[in-house]
Simulated assay, not measured.
Amino acid sequence: MSKWRAESIYLKRYAGSGAFNTLIGFSIIFALMWAGVSPFVANIAGYAVGFVFGFILSKKIVFRSNGGFVMESVRYLVAFFVAFFLNFVVLHALMKWPNFPVVLAQLVAAGCYTVSMYCLTRFFVFSSSLSPKGANDKADH
């Protein structure tokens, strides 16, 4: 299987698990904002819940890693903080623009988080411990 084909399978799995995780995270973010909570606090709450779901989905479904739970958990935590910091910087910058829609700011910040988190999980968190079959599992064809 070509490297591009294998990568496309990881990306499809990441997109599928990410859609589920995004639904949960944004439900929390927007529910809290609707309840009057600051967009920044709502963002932190949504991503905190997404952290737990994201790790489990990435390890078991996206990358099907056979690596050690503790080591990958620590790496995932580092990756999460790097990606979340980028998300928060983007959100903060957009919120400083006069009349910039808060919902659009949340979506742009989430896009930055998503791209950076994929790269970090793929090449830092799970890269050395992917199952030998990895992206080549029959269920994905």
Rank of each mutant, 00 (worst) to 15 (best):
F53L: 11
L32M: 14
F40E: 04
L57G: 05
R75K: 13
S58H: 05
N43G: 09
R64S: 08
V37A: 01
I56N: 08
A42P: 10
G67L: 05
K60R: 12
V74T: 14
W34V: 15
R75I: 01
V52S: 11
M33S: 09
I61E: 07
N43E: 11
V52M: 08
V74M: 06
G54D: 11
Y76F: 13
G67C: 09
G46S: 13
S65N: 00
K60L: 15
I44L: 13
S73T: 13
N43Q: 08
L57S: 07
L77W: 07
A45H: 10
Y47Q: 14
L57F: 09
S58A: 14
W34Q: 13
E72I: 02
R75F: 07
A42V: 02
G67K: 02
V62E: 11
G46R: 13
F40Y: 14
S73C: 12
V52A: 05
V52I: 15
F69I: 11
G36W: 02
F53Y: 06
Y47D: 10
K60D: 15
F69P: 01
L57W: 04
M71S: 14
V52E: 01
S73P: 09
V37W: 00
S58P: 03
A31T: 15
V62G: 09
F53I: 10
I44K: 03
M33H: 04
F40T: 14
Y76N: 07
G46N: 06
W34E: 07
A45Q: 15
V52P: 01
G50I: 07
A42H: 01
A31D: 03
R75A: 01
A31Q: 03
S38Y: 06
F30D: 03
M71N: 15
M71P: 06
I44E: 02
R64I: 12
F55L: 01
E72N: 13
R75G: 06
E72T: 11
P39Q: 02
A35I: 00
G54L: 10
G68F: 08
V37M: 04
S58K: 00
L32G: 05
F51L: 15
I44M: 12
S73V: 13
V52R: 00
G50N: 08
M33R: 10
S38F: 02
Y76D: 01
F53E: 03
N66E: 15
S58E: 00
K59D: 08
F69K: 08
F51I: 13
E72V: 00
I44Q: 11
V62P: 00
F63P: 02
A42Y: 04
L77R: 04
F63G: 02
A48Q: 04
M71H: 10
G46I: 00
L57Y: 03
K60C: 13
Y76V: 03
V49I: 13
R64N: 04
F51Y: 15
A35T: 14
G67Q: 00
F51R: 11
Y47A: 14
I44V: 14
A45M: 12
F30Q: 04
K60W: 11
L32C: 05
A42W: 03
L77H: 01
N66K: 15
P39T: 01
V74C: 08
E72R: 03
I44T: 09
W34S: 13
V70G: 09
F63M: 04
G50L: 09
I44S: 05
I29L: 14
V70A: 15
W34K: 11
R75S: 00
I29K: 00
